[in-house]
Amino acid sequence: MELLAAYPILAAMLALGVLGGLFGLMLGFAAIRFHVESDPVVDQIDAILPQTQCGQCGFPGCRPYAEAIAAGTAEINQCPPGGEAGIRALADLLGRDFVPLNEEHGEHKGKRVAIIDEKVCIGCTLCIQACPVDAILGAAKQMHTVIESECTGCELCVAPCPVDCIHMVPVETDVESWKWPSPDDQASDMNLRELIQAAKV
């Protein structure tokens, strides 16, 4: 005690040192105890992608594409089903500029589902093997059918069909899925309609 009283500078250094050590321990403990698994950027990108698993981006599914974007080996404008809204969301997330959809990968179409013409189907199972989300039901030499609510409209089943019995049909808006138009769109719609009318006349 006397020693400390005699050397006030030493006392101050000691006190600060002890306090520093204590706080360090507390922070270290807090870092482990309250550790939050940060959302890796791949997951965040994957959450934005539409999960059609269509492969139009050039990767075998949405997750590989998300990984490629995160790694910087793919552009953010390669996903036609995601459309402009998807590219905007990706640009927002990654802090990049918006770029229009790369047309090499296809064009943005409305929501569609595959329908199997059951009269023509020969039960070859090729489409079942092609479906990335197991949305086609059937067995060898049995009629196949698409579970519409689970179809992502990826079109991967269309090409393998040997009898061309799979058709992509647009999903019709019903009362449940109908959306109020924005008044901004309505104004332009009306102009468009007027233009069409004028053209007809």
């Binding site: 992608l49 539409p50 999960q51 059609t52 997750r63 990335p132 989300v133 689970e150």
Partner: peptide
């Protein structure tokens, strides 16, 4: 729907 598709994929 996307979550369901991801799960199934």
């Amino acid at each position: 729907k996307a979550d369901l598709a991801r799960l199934r994929h």
